[in-house]
Design a protein around this nucleic acid. Structure first.
Lengths: 215, 215
DNA sequence: GTCTATACAGAGATAGAC
DNA sequence: GTCTATCTCTGTATAGAC
């Protein structure tokens, strides 16, 4: 039927326009979902943010759910990446310090991703059941086993490994999810790189010392 | 016109029905707002949760905004209460330990309140500007001054007081806001009182030791 | 590949009967 | 004080012109 048109678009550059548009839409969607969660987000608002006509969103993504899934998958990849850091061979003080540093770096660089994740959990994680009960749980079991190994080897105090991880998550993600409250409390427009370095140093000091890893 | 009916309802007990209904609606609204935030929440859904006809919500609360405000004000009162705890005369180890204990108790007893607050901050705190820039900021300045006093007196390590507070907030509120993730990770249906006591003990140990308050 | 027009569902709000 | 009926707006989704 539309063989001419099809040929034309195929000959242009395979999926170039599509790819560009998808990225623009995806980024706008991230902002919207981070603020309002899945239910509160509106496609119209995403279209305005992306500066594209509203029906185009439907052209690139079948529906709201599919768009959300696409965004969410990106974030999970990011999350898992941050979490595969330390290994049993590492020195615990360094390994935990690096993990805290990395998590804070993520809060600084990808606050939107963190917020979407937070929104998803707040809404009862309806789209993350598989992830929470499989991928994350396996990863977590692995990490806590490493920490327990360090404890058994007398390298650090006897802390419940799970609680230590939750502790680090809570403290670091807070800087992304509650960023507005923090900025407001400190009377700053934005947190600078120096601010984040100070935060990192303070956090690492408290936690490593608190776990008996440094004096 | 309806003098008989009016008399009847007035003679019942002044505002008894109204009060009861308001409470039921308020509690349903809390659940809904905690899950979906202001924008994502729907009055219809709140009515279903409260098991009242939808128009009744409008009878008791002018509109969605007013209902939300009512719920939010309750939460701020709760939040401030938790935050007016420690004073300069306290011993820092005990004061900070008590504050952590109290914050965790709030996460355990009022997870819904915590989630509404989290949602509000995630959405850019459009209804909390006054609170964040006034009440909270004053309270926070006061608390950090106390901590700084302890540091100057050589009672604890030199930690940035603001960051210590944010640290405690992040770590404790995490157990309310990310409760689902935590339960899923631990493979538990609910966290027991014993779980919370263990969490409290671990958190207090890490933070007080990490700040040089205990050996 | 882009965009106008439109169908249709859900939600907020209010008038007015009971 | 309760609830039906209704108005209006917003939002999702799709058909079809260009």
């Amino acid at each position: 039927m539309n063989s001419v048109k099809e040929y034309k678009s195929a000959s242009y550059k395979t999926g170039k326009i599509r790819k560009d548009n998808e990225i623009v839409i995806r980024e706008a969607a991230e902002q919207e979902f981070a603020e309002f969660g899945f239910k509160g987000a509106s496609i119209m608002s995403i279209a305005k943010r992306a500066n594209v006509p509203r029906p185009n969103i439907h052209y690139y993504f079948k529906n709201k759910q599919e768009l959300y899934n696409a965004v969410l998958m990106d974030i999970l990849a990011l999350w898992n990446k941050a979490f595969t850091e330390f290994t049993a061979e590492d020195e615990p003080a360094e390994a935990i310090g690096n993990y805290i540093r990395l998590k804070l770096m993520y809060s600084r660089c990808y606050p939107t991703a963190s917020k979407i994740f937070a929104n998803e959990i707040l809404q009862g994680a309806p789209h993350l059941n598989t992830y929470l009960n499989n991928d994350l749980r396996v990863l977590l079991a692995h990490k806590t086993a490493i920490i327990q190994g360090w404890i058994d080897a007398g390298k650090m105090d006897a802390i419940q490994p799970y609680y230590l991880i939750f502790f680090i998550w809570g403290a670091t993600q807070h800087y992304a999810d509650f960023g507005i409250q923090i900025k407001s409390a400190l009377g700053k427009e934005e947190l600078s790189e120096e601010d984040f370095e100070e935060i990192t140093a303070n956090l690492i000091q408290i936690i490593t010392k608190g776990c008996g890893l440094v004096k």
